[in-house]
Design a protein around this nucleic acid. Sequence first.
DNA 1: CAAGACTCCTGTCAGC
DNA 2: TGCTGACAGGAGTCTT
Length: 272
Amino acid sequence: MPELPEVETTRQGIAPHITGKLVNQVVIRHHGLRWPIDPALPNILQRKKLLDIDRRGKYLLLQFTHGHLLIHLGMSGSLRIVNPKKESPQKHDHVDIIFTNNIALRFHDPRRFGSILWTTSPPEEHALLCKLGPEPLSDAFNSEYLFTKSRKRKKDVKTFIMDSHIVVGVGNIYANESLFTAGIRPTKMASKLTRKQCEQWVNDIKAVLQRSITQGGTTLRDFVGGDGKPGYFAQQLNVYGRGGQPCVVCKTLLKEIRQAQRATTYCTRCQK
DNA sequence: CAAGACTCCTGTCAGC
DNA sequence: TGCTGACAGGAGTCTT
């Protein structure tokens, strides 16, 4: 499932191939994503130049001369660069944005939780983006911010940190992993976090995300041809998906629970 | 306003 | 072996 590192690596992987190129054709094979794709999109993008690709949270922002295309990969989405004449679309290849040099950006999404939205207003003003919290790797996300935001919050820390209005891009995997590294129990109330814990946790969140992005950078070739799946998901995970297995530090069997309908795994001994 | 439930979807897997 | 049902999960929206 694409988390922030995967989205950022996707951005870096596709940008060199299509930035500055003109759109020649848009092929939509399936409109039914999270929200329906605007049927006018092919006309909107026809002969328009892609100026830049940016990212906000897990949204990719494709800047054209007259507006932005917002792409979210949802749970199972991926983007890759293909030659549309040589690589025929496979199942779940819902959209091709074909540029004049016969290079296509191909959107693949089996579960169709992703979205492709056109907007002519500044992207930061878009309803989906304007209320988002800071980027986790920015200076705005610091221990003071986290401490302040967590006061009076009657919510467990894990659910709290996964709220994109607090901070963007910390999905289930990184919430679990960073809590383990920081030694914080996922069920702890957000309001009970100490300043010291906030400082530790912020550092650990940044570290785990940064490490994944760096690792992803070594597999950029995967975005051209192939299956479009970045190969770096296989980073070492300390707790995520390891319920019932021994803690890598103390060998205590990891406990698995559910919080807000999501799997949480933690060590009852290492995480207080 | 905050918190929790519900929802979209399909591949995967356990159980029979 | 094949069918059925549970489950995973980002994040917007609805309900309480």
